[in-house]
């Protein structure tokens, strides 16, 4: 076992244990935090594969933004665990069948001829000045530019739709208009009244 193997096995074992924790722990906040750990360790694995752009993007997007919002929501929800576990055995056969189908599908893909260890050559190690950010950018904006822009448009549509669904026009809310607050002048708020001084007894 050399150093790279050691790093790989330690990261991989942490990822697997954490992933098991995500689905078995009782406290949903702990599950979310373990999911964060899974993301961080898998980004470490990707760095080991010299995919530093994807690894950093994984941390930036999933750990830095998505999981924060996830944590935010899970902390605010009042989840009753006992009620959630009530129907476990009733739904167990359904879930088991689903899991079985997914496992078969994945093994059919991964163990097929295209993905076997014989078909996939081990890529060569690149030198330290090789930038896969640049390579990825060049590929995305030339060869796959239509697919890339299509994905961007789909995301934009989804975002606008999500905002449109949750946007409610309420007339009874008392929000303040910052522009008008800033534009206020002294005369609107303050009135100096001149009055004759009263004499003290």
């Amino acid at each position: 076992m050399n150093f790279l193997d050691f790093v790989f096995y330690s990261l991989a074992s942490v990822a697997i244990v954490a992933a098991l924790g995500v689905i078995t722990l009782r406290n949903p906040v702990h599950s979310v935090l373990l999911l964060v750990l899974v993301f961080v360790t898998s980004s470490g694995l990707w760095i080991l594969l010299e995919a530093e752009f994807l690894a950093i993007a994984l941390v930036l997007v999933y750990v830095g933004a998505v999981m924060v919002l996830f944590l935010f929501v899970v902390m605010m929800l009042d989840i009753n665990l006992d009620r959630m576990r009530e129907g476990f055995w009733k739904w167990f056969p359904f879930g088991a069948i689903l899991a079985l189908i997914m496992t078969v599908e994945m093994s059919m893909v991964l163990m097929s001829k295209q993905f076997g260890p014989e078909a996939m050559q081990t890529p060569e190690y690149k030198s330290a000045d090789y930038s896969n950010t640049k390579e990825l950018g060049q590929l995305l904006y030339t060869e796959y530019v239509y697919a890339f822009e299509l994905a961007a448009v789909i995301l934009l549509v989804a975002m606008i739709a999500a905002i449109a669904i949750t946007l409610r026009y309420r007339t009874d809310k008392k929000s303040s208009d910052a522009r008008r607050q800033i534009a206020v002048s002294r005369d609107e708020r303050l009135r100096v009244v001149s009055m004759t001084a009263e004499k003290k007894e």
């Binding site: 964060v36 530093e52 752009f53 950093i56 993007a57 941390v59 930036l60 750990v63 830095g64 933004a65 924060v68 944590l71 930038s131 950010t133 640049k134």
Partner: peptide, 16 residues
């Protein structure tokens, strides 16, 4: 090479 991305990723982790 991806230093700027790394910086963004690290600063976004501070909120945890």
């Amino acid at each position: 090479d991806a230093a700027l991305l790394y910086i963004l990723a690290m600063t976004s982790l501070g909120v945890y």
